[in-house]
Amino acid sequence: MVLLSLLAAVTIGIVRLRNLFAIVILSGIYSFLMASVMIVLDAVDVAMTEASVGAGISTVLMLGVLYLTKTEESAPVHSPALPLFVSAVTGAVLIYGTFGLPPFGMADTPVNTHIGPDYLAGSIPQTGIPNVVTSVLASYRGFDTLGETTVIFTAGIGVLLLLKRLRRAEPDK
């Protein structure tokens, strides 16, 4: 509860502030808080990723981009009414959706009764890996992970193409 209130406070800070440097630092703090929430939920792998990507790498990249641009956000040109309406409606629909979910950690939900127990029981005899997260990620669902790696590869190549082309075009001017 304390973590969630802090998350809300940081979010309000990000929305209210106009100084981009402060916003980047607050986003880093937000990621650290999110990582703490993930640890509370026992998702240590996700927490590790959130802390290193969200708080570490993206903060550094944002600061690098900030060096190339101005540090003050320009005033919005549109009225904030429509975006506010869209996000309020989306939030309300999402909260309404959570009422249909089973309570957190229930043992007899489809998630916990379908194929999960097979993985839990089969991980040691079939793969010899005690950490079921790793055996599911790399062995049982290796195809999905190959897809994820390809997504990272494609995204990286796309970003590199955009940035490199800009850099190469500059000396011609």
Partner: peptide, 22 residues
């Protein structure tokens, strides 16, 4: 497989960083 993931992830991150910071 994990080695492959490590190589692509770290390579992509560093490449983007070089492109932005350079």
């Amino acid at each position: 497989v994990e080695a492959g993931v490590l190589i692509t992830v770290s390579g992509t991150m560093i490449a983007i960083f070089y492109a932005v910071a350079g």
